[in-house]
Amino acid sequence: MSTATQRDPIGWLALPAVAYLGLVYALPLVFLLARSVTGPEGFTLQLFGQFFADPYSWRVIWNTLRIALLTTLVCLLIGFPVAIAMARAKGLMQVALLVAIILPLSIGVVVKAFAWQIVLRRDGVVSQFLVGTGIWSEPQRLLFTETGLVMGAANVFLPFMILPIYSVVKLIDPRLSEAGATLGASPLYRFRRIFLPLTLPGLVSGIAFVFSMSVSMFVIPSLLIGDRFQMLATLTGRSFLLMRNEALGSTTAVVLLVMAVSIVVASSWLAKRLGGSQ
């Protein structure tokens, strides 16, 4: 059997996987989108009109964006230095960093969110630590607060900030900075003009990962802040699982989907413009 003479039969090997995901995953998503803009008389944006006319919806959207932005910011402030440390670390420190980042990645979100329920209690380790160091005068409960939610979410998503930044930082040639120093550039100038531009693609993809995961998180807010504080994903879940309100659930699901897709598209466009490798 000669494969060279035929016109690329090996391409057909892609068919089963593509057909499977097309039928089981892409087609239902298209139907979800189509149904959300279809009424009894054909095309309509009525469901979205209703949704966006309700002030409560705007509060939910604002909750979602605010928590996602704060979570992303916390992850960036911790993740950027950690990625730099990881690229420089040797020996035990490197192993410790790698284990601390990779191990939580293979543990389910239910396990971690449950652990944070314990950590954020009034007698939990965070409260004990802050009272012990004198920052707080008395123990406080962080569970069911926005601060607690951001802490838990940042903890779960931090590896997704660190790893993309690390993947570009480790490729930066240290001689570039030395060359800058030889030419009289100050450390701050070298960071801003040499280091930062080179890490930008990693920063963009890390921010996009964490932001889109924070926008669509469901288990973490369910366990760490409860029903009184709704985000788009928790409202979507509740509409389907508890309230049996499929119209509302489909609408919020589509809003969430559009947000997530825009983040992915915008970040990959930005990464390409910045000349990133991924």
Binding site: Y25, L27, L29, R35, S216, S250, A253
Partner: peptide, 13 residues
Amino acid sequence: LPGLVVGIAMLQG
């Protein structure tokens, strides 16, 4: 993509 949205789409499909 948000897992929840994918789940809902598949459920209906």
